[in-house]
Amino acid sequence: MKVLELKEVNKIYDGSEVHVHAVSDVTLDFHEAEFAAIVGPSGSGKTTLLNLIGGLDMPTSGEIIIDGTNLSKLKSSQLIDFRMRNIGFVFQAYNLIPVLTAKENVEFIMSLQKWSRKERDERTFELLKAVGLFERMNSRPSKMSGGQQQRVAVARALASRPKFVLADEPTANLDSKSATTLLEIMEKLNHEEKITFIFSTHDARVVKMAHRVITLEDGKVVSDDKRE
């Protein structure tokens, strides 16, 4: 089942001083339960592409269709709501609310969606167990390592069962052991929850673990390599 479709997407940053064609004629499909990496050198357009897919930025031309909904047809308030219901995000840093515990961070979106306490607790405990942090659920982010924080972020991203999860260089600030652990957890959840993961990276070991590798160069897709 197709969850995401990009048709001839372009993004041009056109300022008074800069003119950058950050994403150029990208056409891609993603299906249910994919585990895809977007790779490419710094400045190749990975972040821009993920921001476009996540509705954080609007393409200059082209269409992005998520589960039948064309993102450019949504008003900005609808778009925020759409993101909340359909897309999970893991960023490179500043993922968590520092004043809330791990458990509260994971619950956050579910509570915005007005889930009942019982449903929320069940899902939160399930996910915290899956990322191996059930024992740490009452810790604040500042009391956790970078890798643990990213695992909480992954649990948070999956909490309300989105169509897919976008992760922009989730391992960039992690040592290689934590990075591998994080990827293993992501892969496991991808498998168990049947949720599509799209993540960017320039870490070769992380790339190795992906089932599909899309390579960008100067904003263009230069290869789209499905393994298995």
């Binding site: 925020i80 993101r83 909340m84 897309i87 500043y94």
Partner: peptide
């Protein structure tokens, strides 16, 4: 700034 940006990104609407 970054935290508020993150919250909007993950779907916290303007009203909230």
């Amino acid at each position: 700034t970054k935290e508020l940006g993150m919250l909007t990104a993950i779907g916290m609407n303007k009203k909230k």
